[in-house]
Lab assay of single mutants.
Amino acid sequence: SDPSEDRAPESARVGNIPSSTSALKVPQLKVAESAQGPAAAHTTDTAGYNAMEESVSREKPELTASTERVNKRMSMVVSGLTPEEFMLVYKFARKHHITLTNLITEETTHVVMKTDAEFVCERTLKYFLGIAGGKWVVSYFWVTQSIKERKMLNEHDFEVRGDVVNGRNHQGPKRARESQDRKIFRGLEICCYGPFTNMPTDQLEWMVQLCGASVVKELSSFTLGTGVHPIVVVQPDAWTEDNGFHAIGQMCEAPVVTREWVLDSVALYQCQELDTYLIPQIPHSHY
Rank of each mutant, 00 (worst) to 15 (best):
V257T: 00
M52L: 11
L81R: 01
S57I: 12
N16C: 07
R7P: 06
W261Y: 03
G80Y: 14
R69V: 15
M152C: 04
T258E: 05
N102T: 13
A32I: 14
G172A: 04
V56C: 14
L88E: 08
P195V: 14
E155R: 02
A8H: 05
E5V: 05
M152V: 08
V160S: 00
P61T: 12
D181E: 06
I98V: 08
P18Q: 04
L103G: 15
A40K: 04
V137A: 01
E33F: 15
Q28L: 13
V160A: 04
L29R: 10
D181T: 15
M113F: 02
A93V: 13
A254Q: 13
E68L: 11
Q145S: 12
Q28P: 07
E54N: 13
K114F: 06
V77S: 02
R168K: 01
L274A: 12
I184T: 03
T223I: 06
Y49S: 12
R73I: 01
P283H: 13
P18V: 03
Q235E: 14
P195R: 12
R13V: 12
S139R: 00
K114L: 06
A93R: 04
H284T: 10
P230T: 15
G212E: 10
S285K: 14
S79N: 02
R168V: 10
P255E: 11
F119L: 14
C191V: 11
A247T: 09
V165F: 03
Y277P: 03
V89C: 07
G37H: 04
V120Y: 02
P3I: 11
T258K: 14
A23G: 02
T197M: 12
T197W: 06
H170A: 02
Q28M: 03
H284S: 12
I147Y: 15
E260D: 05
V31K: 12
E241M: 15
E253R: 02
P230S: 15
P200L: 14
Y49H: 06
E260C: 11
G227N: 10
V138T: 06
S22T: 02
F245S: 12
Q36L: 03
S66E: 05
Q28R: 10
A41S: 11
R7A: 15
Y49V: 10
F158L: 00
L103N: 05
V234T: 09
A93T: 13
Q281W: 15
R182A: 03
K148N: 08
V262Q: 04
E159C: 12
K135E: 01
D45F: 09
I231K: 01
A32L: 13
M76S: 03
M207R: 01
S55H: 10
D6R: 12
T108A: 05
R259M: 02
P255G: 00
Y90F: 08
D2W: 02
V137R: 00
L81Q: 08
G167F: 01
L188H: 03
T258C: 15
P83R: 05
A267T: 07
I279V: 12
S179T: 09
S19T: 07
E59F: 10
T226M: 13
P200Q: 08
R182Y: 14
T101L: 07
T21L: 07
A93S: 04
K72G: 07
A117V: 07
H97T: 07
K183R: 06
E33S: 03
K91S: 09
P280R: 08
A93P: 01
T99A: 10
S66I: 08
P230L: 14
R182I: 11
A40N: 13
V257E: 01
H42G: 08
G225S: 13
V228L: 14
D6G: 07
V160Q: 00
L268N: 11
G80E: 01
T67S: 14
T64C: 15
T108C: 06
D181Q: 02
F128Y: 01
I184Q: 01
C252L: 07
G187A: 14
G172T: 08
Y193R: 15
W206R: 08
K174R: 12
V208Q: 03
S20L: 06
S221C: 14
R259W: 03
E107F: 07
V31I: 03
P9L: 06
G249W: 11
D2S: 03
R168Q: 06
R150T: 09
S19C: 07
P27A: 13
Q145N: 02
P27T: 12
G212Q: 12
K30T: 12
N243T: 15
Q180C: 04
A35Y: 04
V266F: 00
V256D: 03
R259I: 02
G130A: 12
E253C: 12
G162V: 00
S265C: 11
P18L: 04
V257W: 00
H284Y: 12
K151Y: 11
G187C: 06
S4E: 04
E53Y: 09
Y127R: 00
R161T: 10
E107P: 07
T99I: 09
K60T: 07
K148R: 15
L100F: 07
P255T: 02
R161P: 05
E122L: 05
L63K: 04
I282Y: 05
A117E: 02
K25Y: 11
R186A: 09
A238R: 14
L204S: 02
V56L: 13
E59I: 06
I17L: 07
D181H: 08
L63V: 13
K91V: 13
I131L: 04
W206S: 09
T109L: 01
G15E: 06
Q250P: 15
C192R: 01
A254G: 12
A117I: 15
G133T: 03
D6T: 12
L219S: 14
S4P: 02
D45L: 15
W261V: 04
K135F: 12
E178M: 11
P3V: 06
N166K: 09
H286T: 11
S20I: 06
R69P: 08
V143H: 00
V256K: 02
R175K: 14
R73L: 08
S34N: 06
V256M: 10
G37A: 09
R161A: 05
P173A: 10
P283S: 12
S179K: 00
V256R: 02
A213R: 03
V215Q: 13
L153Y: 05
E253K: 05
L100Q: 04
H246S: 12
Q36C: 09
A32Y: 04
S221V: 15
M87F: 08
P3S: 10
K183G: 02
P173E: 00
L278A: 13
L278G: 13
A254T: 15
H170C: 02
P38A: 12
K135D: 02
K148Y: 03
V262E: 00
G194A: 14
Q209K: 10
I279L: 06
V266G: 01
V111F: 01
E273L: 14
M207K: 02
L100T: 07
D181S: 09
T108W: 05
S11W: 09
E218R: 14
V233P: 00
R94Y: 15
Q36Y: 15
R168S: 08
A254M: 11
Q281T: 12
C192G: 03
N169A: 01
S19M: 04
P230W: 06
N16D: 07
R186P: 15
E107W: 09
